[in-house]
Design a protein around this nucleic acid. Structure first.
Lengths: 162, 162
DNA sequence: TCAAGATTGATGCAGCTGCATTTAGTGCGG
DNA sequence: CCGCACTAAATGCAGCTGCATCAATCTTGA
């Protein structure tokens, strides 16, 4: 059972873990220093703002963001507490609900994108040519079974999802 | 302030976040299913086992693992609780201490490496040729200011560090 | 020699995460 | 129409993380 992964594979694994945490930390830090909430909030607001009528089912949000159900539930709680979103009852399915982004939510999303995009540029864009960034995408996509397609489409106003 | 990062940079950012979390999750899951503790424990045990006399200062460990001080402190607590490591007093500096890996700790580290290396192979190695893995390393290293050098040297028996 | 400052490690607190379970509602087969 | 399986969402609990702070000790420099 020894020496299964090649040195290269192991090195890639280590880099993937280290660099991601480093870059994510740097970006989150920039956001926080600019007085903004965590990235997850941005992701949620972005998804909501993209929805046709500014509202969607929690289940839907959960699938888009690739986070567990309970996590979605609590994230919505926080957004609602801050007046960035509102819960609406769902008439066709009384178990469920709709979550609607508020005007404040839309504004915050836009403001965050300024800081967020600057952070991406600072910590990723400025360190890699577009060609290299594309190469990196290609290599990373091969590690994720089949999450590349959707992500490519969504690659406008960046939405990570942990 | 609009359109700062290129589409490619943003796409790379998204991939980096998504794929990392996906791969990390898969590896941790494999470890857990095999009945092992979290990866952080492995990292710590590995560092300790590498130390000349099987012991090192918490500060040292902290630097190697790139995790905050309080995190190290509590990780050591857990290792000690499980009998995988032991605290030794430090005679030359009474503020400090030494942490020594136990025999059980060494054994666990070795056993974990079997499962861990298999997971790396399964989730990284098998999806990328060595050449591509090396390319990936190169690209990722450019994102991390200066963490590549050390990591390359340490690339035996993989040690991530979040 | 001694006070000021730096360093080592621990800890209380708040917030977040995962897991398992609960509550409520839907829909299908008999 | 009823019971049973399934889905939607919330929640209690334990564990982990970050932050700020603390106590103890070491070091430095006047």
């Amino acid at each position: 059972m020894k020496r299964k992964p090649s040195t290269e594979a192991t090195a890639a694994w280590i880099r993937l873990m280290r660099i991601q945490s480093q870059v994510l930390g740097a970006v989150e830090q920039d956001l926080k220093k600019a007085g903004f909430p965590p990235l997850a909030w941005y992701d949620a607001l972005l998804e909501l703002s993209r929805a046709p009528s500014g509202e969607m089912r929690p289940v839907e949000l959960e699938k888009q963001m690739l986070i567990p159900q309970y996590s979605t539930s609590r994230l919505i709680d926080r957004l609602v507490d801050e007046g960035l979103a509102a819960r609406r009852e769902c008439k066709i399915d009384k178990r469920g609900q709709f979550v609607e982004i508020t005007e404040a939510g839309r504004e915050l999303q836009k403001k965050m994108w300024s800081a967020y995009s600057a952070a991406i540029e600072k910590h990723v864009g400025s360190k890699l040519s577009d060609v290299d960034a594309a190469k990196l995408c290609g290599l990373l996509d091969r590690l994720g079974c089949s999450c590349g397609e959707a992500a490519t489409l969504a690659a406008r106003d960046g939405a990570p999802a942990r």
